[in-house]
């Protein structure tokens, strides 16, 4: 029996905050062919395009547990602290989060100010 079914694209995942778009092949907490790994939130998942092994998956994003926005897992858009929170929601409810997370956000903010996005390399 062939347990390695080819994943079919289900649609495009688009982050409602940064616009990152990528096709996803699975939505849920137990991506196919990953056996022992489970996700702690319902996530949009694709096959990891950067690893040749076809069983490796990549979590693209999920829904904010407060506002239900679809957000990517990028640190500019959301964070996970036992649940997914989009950054706007985190900022609104900053006090509810532990100090470590607040410090972390603060650090990131000053960091992104002093280091604008890196230059991309050119290709024809």
């Amino acid at each position: 029996m062939d347990s390695h079914k080819e994943a079919q694209p289900k649609g495009d995942f688009e982050c409602q905050l940064c616009g990152l778009t990528a096709p996803y092949s699975y939505y849920g907490q137990k991506p196919p062919n990953t056996h022992s790994v489970v996700l702690l939130e319902e996530s949009y998942v694709m096959k990891d395009p950067f690893i040749p092994d076809k069983d490796k998956f990549l979590i693209l994003g999920s829904q904010c547990s407060l506002c239900n926005r679809r957000v990517c897992v990028g640190t500019e858009c959301s964070l996970f602290y036992s649940k997914r929170f989009c950054l706007p929601c985190v900022n609104e409810n900053l006090r509810e989060f532990p100090l470590e997370i607040r410090q972390d956000l603060e650090k990131r903010k000053s960091h992104s100010k002093s280091h604008p996005s890196k230059k991309a390399d050119a290709r024809t």
Binding site: S36, V37, V38, L39, L40, E41, S43, I59, S62, L66, V73, L79, F80, Y81, S82, K83, R84, N93, E96, F97, P98, L99, E100, I101
Partner: peptide, 19 residues
């Protein structure tokens, strides 16, 4: 926000688990 762990631990920031 009700169920957020009060005591911080980096493990809470990982969104997957292994059986």
């Amino acid at each position: 926000l009700a169920g957020l762990p009060r005591e911080y631990d980096p493990c809470y920031r990982i969104n997957l688990s292994v059986l």
